[in-house]
Design a binder for these strands. Structure first.
Lengths: 352, 352
DNA sequence: CTGAAAGCGCTAACAG
DNA sequence: CTGTTAGCGCTTTCAG
């Protein structure tokens, strides 16, 4: 690896001059010399050493992303959002993937091992002199872990810290629940069944809240008998839709697309035409929602937007640190989802 | 940020001693002193600066992953494989995502802009003193780009370089094509329809090759009228399966799950029971393959394995560089896929 | 306009 | 066992 020193020797100037020229500082050398230095640099295939550069400048222009598991479906999109924003701002990112899913087989109830893993990762990242950290969760939930001590700003994506002591960016589950429900009500549905996720899930709770609000606002009684709790898997959607359809609901809102596919299956089996005899909504905008005719209506979470927002917050905090103008961003920021109404939502049934 | 120097001052020893103690070098100081130094380090919340450390050691123990686009479905799994191997070997990774899909909307025919992007990324990574690079493609194809000049080893995952001048790890499309076909033949199918991807695709070519081989080995004529070329999308599977089913095939092999879902749709429409009246195979093991009853048989590519293998190769090359024992690994390495036979493949039809 | 000198935080000889 | 010394490759005053 060629260094600045060699270039200096070859061109008969000092390392300082080479550095200045290569960094485009105006008036660092005569026009001739500048050309020569650049030529030699290219000739030696000079690559600056950013370790040395950053060490000297005491600034890395880098933030860290910690992902709980990059293989979980929504994570890459969030990472992508962070990257796109950072790129625009001239910041680099370094990614630390905990691989929780792979490692613990989806059991990450903030175990001691998990904590140790995380602490080690944070130490490592801090050692690399990152200026901020974005923690990307697999699904929205409270993160128990609190860093041993954190010398840089942190923000949480798709999850939130205990007591909201650090800022977090989530999508607005409640609003999405409300919007879907309102849409169905506006189409004339008075009796809407729900297949939630597990009762302990933040998503379940928030979406159901939105559902209930919408009913209330339209003076429709909330019938908890029409609300079932699944486990996000297809089979649970299938199973639970049996009793649910028996109740005579005219629409079903499943809290994810995978369970919605199970509902679809059940409808097929019963000879119910989705989008005609029954309206169906899912959530997440996954591939499978397009796997049927008619396709399943769904809700697209603003994953990329969450990433961008997190990046924005963290970069602001970093900038503030130098300015001493601490913009106290904290608490949860909720971003709106987009409702994808597809054929499965059916026509309005009011005229019927 | 506390430094080694401060600790040295506070404990009245030299920085060298602090460094030695903190790195656990045996016999660096008296027992008392060791305790004291460690205590002070903790007290100051000392975090080593890896920039300085790596600069000094002239070794980073880090390799780079360049992904064409982390949001493309198979990429995260490959990255995960690389990470798991590197972790075991005490290597760190740094990820550079080109975001080709997002940026160019899936048109990445190795344009000049793409090349410039890549060159910039490589320069950046090299500046960070990575010791090797793994390039992860979105889909198997020849990568035209050749690095301006590369001072570290490189290996390609899920794609291969022009003229195979660098090693690459792919999965064995041909074998997978063969295996699926043989499985269907063994069940008694003599007339098997195929819905390929685009004619220009490496995957299409290789899988079809396997298909043809299997027919040949079982003395079955290859009827190119039963082979249609889709575009990987669901609609093409649906459209093409019309004429394909008209030919009276008893089995359909679609080259991905998404097109297979289109075929499924068509079967439903025609009242053909998948897994009974017709056998169906997809490829990729995507969510959607489980979205039907019976579920679609498919092929799972060894994504994580590809990642691990790439990591192994690159780490070997890095080790070799210091030993001067260049294990000339090059050419393509093919890893086997796993065939997931599900109900859609049907029973054997021989007895019928 | 140019360069000498100092030093970012750390490690690796080598002496004592 | 401990400390001194000499940098890793780069940037940045500051004096010429």
């Amino acid at each position: 690896m060629a260094t600045i020193k060699e270039i200096a020797k070859l061109t008969g100037v000092s390392t300082a001059t080479v550095s200045n020229v290569l960094n485009g500082k105006p008036g660092s050398a005569g026009e001739e010399k500048i050309k020569e230095i650049k030529a030699v640099a290219r000739w030696l295939n000079y690559t600056p050493n950013s370790l040395a550069k950053n060490l000297k400048k005491r600034k890395t222009n880098t933030i860290a992303i910690i992902t709980e598991d990059i293989t979980v479906f929504n994570t890459p999109e969030i990472v992508d959002g962070i990257e796109s924003f950072c790129e625009e701002q001239g910041y680099e990112i370094i990614l630390g993937n905990m691989r929780l899913f792979k490692r613990y087989n989806n059991d990450f109830t903030d175990t001691p091992r998990h904590q140790e893993l995380l602490n080690a990762l944070v130490r490592n990242l801090l050692a690399k002199q990152v200026e901020g950290i974005i923690y990307v969760g697999c699904h929205c939930r409270e993160i128990q872990w609190l860093p041993d001590d954190l010398s840089v700003p942190i923000v949480f994506a798709y999850c939130y810290p205990h007591d909201d002591i650090y800022p977090s960016v989530l999508f607005d589950d409640e609003k999405a629940g409300y919007d879907v429900t309102k849409l169905l009500i506006d189409k004339g549905h008075q009796s809407i069944g729900v297949i939630c996720g597990p009762i302990t899930s933040y998503h379940t709770h928030a979406r159901l809240q939105g559902f209930q609000q919408a009913l209330f606002d339209h003076h429709i009684l909330y019938n908890s008998r029409n609300v079932f709790y699944g486990d996000w898997e297809r089979l649970s959607g299938y199973r639970l839709s049996g009793p649910l359809l028996d109740t005579g609901v005219s629409a079903v809102f499943a809290f994810n697309d995978v369970m919605a596919s199970g509902v679809y299956e059940r409808c097929l089996e019963r000879g119910l035409v989705v989008g005609k005899d029954i309206a169906l909504f899912g959530f997440d905008n996954r591939d499978i929602s397009l796997g049927y005719t008619p396709p399943i209506s769904t809700v697209k979470p603003p994953l990329s937007g969450i990433g961008r927002k997190c990046a924005e917050i963290i970069l602001n905090k970093i900038a503030d640190q130098s300015d001493h103008t601490d913009t106290e961003t904290f608490g949860r920021i909720l971003l709106s989802c987009v409702v994808y109404e597809r054929k499965s939502a059916g026509e309005s049934i009011i005229q019927k």
